[in-house]
Amino acid sequence: MKNDTRPRFERKKENIAVLVMILLCIPVLFIYFSFFKNAFFVGGTGAFTLDNFRFLYEPIVLGQRTVQPIGQAFTNTVIFTAISTVCEVVISCMAGYALARMEFTGKRVITFSLLSLRLFPGVLLLIGALYVLMYLGVLNTLFGVIIVAIALRLPGSTFIIRNFFTGIPRDIENSALVDGCNRMTAFFQVIIHMVKPGIASISMFAFMSAWSNYLLFNTLIFNTKTPVLATYLRVLSRNDQMIADYGVFAAMALVYMLPVLVFFFISQKQLMEGNISGGKGI
């Protein structure tokens, strides 16, 4: 490094840090390595194969069981993820804005309970949720799971986005009001643009949590008519002979992971840019 002007002892420390990091990375790299090896190469011979990916389009036989193609589970997961992400983002934006900017009674109580609900483990609420769904007659349906999933996540994301709204300079909002907006048009033409990083981050988390949601489907859906990717994967690991086929398993995991990666790369640009000020230093 030509322009490295740091003192020597600091560079020496850095070398040690790099070494430690490499050592720590080796096991992780090994996992990745065997993961891809399992997915793309035949166990004994080491020849390249896409055989493990057959579950994408046809039923496959593992031991004594037939595994249905992934199509149905994939569709369900996409529907579930899309609906719950969109609802979560829209609702928490509206609620967060109201909590940040409007005056109404009970505002403090609501804000405080958002925070405490966020700290409360959602699993504990599942039994209650089960009865509520039963009462509403939507137990065992995708719709029921969607409601619960959104409800469990709303406090957290509302709280996060509320803080983004609070950070917007009031002058900018006032300026929009003076310039001919009402609250609604000001929200969509000005405010929303200034919380883009916040929206990116809550939608990112909403997406990831919905995509990988296993708990709710495992508890609130009892039959195999509504499979999602998470429960689909489980079928595989619950092999009768107690021996999982790691090749297929790795291949499925890869398919499972792909959309998350794609989504992450799309939204991370938004996550990184964080300019919400409207002028010099204020």
Binding site: D171, N174, A176, V178, H193, I282
Partner: peptide, 20 residues
């Protein structure tokens, strides 16, 4: 009347330009 119906122009201390 709401601000938008008053036909006023306003300059703020922080300038408050729309950053996007």
């Amino acid at each position: 009347l709401p601000p938008k119906d008053r036909n006023i122009g306003m300059v703020f201390q922080s300038y408050a330009l729309y950053p996007h």
